[in-house]
């Protein structure tokens, strides 16, 4: 993965987290939640349940009003400057509103995430092409983002979120504008990154992507967890496997390979 992981037990750890937006909108109330490294977690719930707020807290776009938010072993209320920047490079966020730069091309939009890590331009080009190919956007490489449909913009946003090989991928309604076939492509992509060690937190109300899943599902309602299981004991075998994989780059798959 992109940066060295901390030795913390969990990739994400929330303890009694509350978030109030001014003047008095209670978005989250006493949410405690842990996500193991390498886990895929589905956050479900109706609109306004607090899913997006939770993801925003995990990327430090917002600060919690109460409680502790830890990501990769860092307490987000205490982290700033260079440490926060490095942590953010290890978090890929597929935003619900995409946050694409409309006057830039698809390739430039995806490159942003890699450029801030000073990735070589040849590597950026290669990764961008592979991602676009996988997501069925190979012919859109030089298309300005403003000329894309919403479904295409969503896929570009997902490509940008994973392009830097982050350790934590946050996806906010990643399939909201996609048909069944494209949804499958996106979920395949997420699975590939998860197999490589990425932790995924997917906020969704698209039942089709979590209906038959073996992964943990947490339901939020009015800012509280109403249905969910605690994180299983950390999978040490998984961590060992990751270490082995990181030590043998020849086993890189299509998505991570820079060749």
């Amino acid at each position: 993965m992109n940066s060295q992981s901390n030795n913390s037990r969990y990739m994400v750890d929330l303890v009694k987290v509350s978030k109030i937006y001014l003047p008095d909108i209670q978005a989250l109330t006493d949410v405690s939640l842990s996500v193991n490294r390498g886990e895929i977690l589905f956050l479900i719930g109706k609109s306004g349940a607090g899913k997006s707020t939770l993801l925003r807290l995990l990327s430090r776009m917002d600060k919690q009003t109460k409680g502790v938010v830890e990501v990769d072993g860092h307490d987000l209320s205490k982290i700033a400057g260079g440490k926060l920047q490095r942590l953010r490079r290890n978090i890929g966020f597929a935003f619900q509103d995409f946050k694409l730069l409309p006057d830039k091309t698809v390739a430039q939009n995806i490159a942003v995430a890699m450029e801030v890590s000073y990735t070589r331009s040849s590597v950026i080009r290669m990764r961008t092409k592979k991602l676009l190919h996988h997501l069925g956007l190979a012919d859109k490489y030089n298309t300005p983002a403003c000329e894309l449909s919403r479904g295409e913009q969503q896929r570009v946003s997902i490509a940008r979120a994973v392009a830097n090989n982050p350790g934590l991928i946050l996806a906010d309604e990643p399939t909201g504008n996609l048909d069944r076939e494209t949804t499958q492509l996106v979920m395949d992509l997420f699975r590939k990154y998860n197999e490589r060690g990425a932790t995924l937190v997917i906020a969704t109300h698209d039942e089709s992507i979590y209906r038959d899943t073996d992964h943990r599902i947490i339901e939020l309602r009015e800012g509280r967890i109403v249905n969910g299981h605690p994180a299983p004991e950390p999978d040490h075998a998984f961590a060992d496997r990751m270490d082995e994989e990181q030590g043998s780059p020849e086993e890189d798959d299509l998505w991570m390979s820079d060749q």
Partner: peptide, 11 residues
Amino acid sequence: ELELLRLVGAS
């Protein structure tokens, strides 16, 4: 763009 740069961890 600047907001995005900050979110993706630009120094």
